[in-house]
């Protein structure tokens, strides 16, 4: 490949970043609050709901995300003859998958806070809702940040699986360019794009970590 071709590939890949980021951000926005809710249900005294969440987490963590994407997109078609937007399918599959992982991270964080915190909150008159949002959640966030940054970094790279049901994102473009140009350079370039994105995410997380260092 000559320099002109490389520059054109760089531009083409850049146009695919948008889709990768869109999947990444929408998944985060939906899966984080859902993860908290699933963690709370899993922790709740209602045995049936708690058990259901356990099974959900077992299935999601126990099967490949590639399979989950395929099931989410093709099952409605084979069972009910429903065809729907591929992008929506990707978001649903990613949310289902990442909610499971996030919920376990949140659960470990919430459970590591001493019971004395909730007891003190109770004796001061806080209701359960206030106790969670004013006392437990802020402390949980600090505890789970390192585990969370791992999962979030994995999410940006996993967006490359969107292409298996035909959603064209950065990695799909790179593969196309690789075969079109008969060269591995587009794949190297796409790798660099991911590296930069992960670098930015890491910086963002260490910033938040530093911000929360005001107490121990």
């Amino acid at each position: 490949m000559n320099i002109k071709q490389i520059i054109s590939v760089i531009k083409i890949l850049f146009s695919g970043i948008g889709m990768s980021l869109k999947i990444f951000i929408i998944t985060l926005i939906i899966a984080i609050p859902l993860g908290i809710i699933v963690a709370l249900i899993r922790n709740s005294k209602n045995k049936i709901f708690s058990y259901l969440m356990k099974v959900y987490i077992l299935i999601i963590r126990g099967t490949p995300i590639m399979l989950q994407i395929i099931v989410v997109y093709f099952c409605p078609y084979y069972l009910f003859n429903i065809k729907y937007d591929r992008f929506v399918a990707i978001i649903i599959a990613f949310v289902i998958n990442y909610t499971a992982y996030f919920s376990e991270i949140f659960r470990s964080g919430i459970n590591s806070i001493s019971i004395g915190q909730s007891e003190a909150a109770y004796t001061l008159g806080f209701n359960k809702f206030q106790t969670f949002f004013l006392i437990l959640l802020p402390q949980t966030i600090k505890i789970i940040l390192p585990a969370m940054s791992n999962e979030v970094i994995s999410l940006i790279k996993t967006t490359s699986l969107a292409q298996i049901i035909g959603v064209t994102e950065m990695f799909a473009l790179a593969q196309k360019q690789a075969s079109y140009n008969f060269s591995v350079i587009p794949l190297v370039l796409v790798g660099m794009y991911y590296l930069v994105l992960v670098f930015i995410i890491s910086i963002a997380f260490s910033r938040i970590e530093r911000k929360l260092e005001y107490y121990s």
Binding site: Q117, E119, A120, Y122, T123, G125, Q139, S216
Partner: peptide
């Protein structure tokens, strides 16, 4: 009743954040 009683714990249980 809860607001009529206050509690001081052995290990303080202050909110660290």
């Amino acid at each position: 009743i809860n607001m009529d009683t206050g509690m001081v714990f052995q290990d303080f249980n202050l909110f660290p954040h």
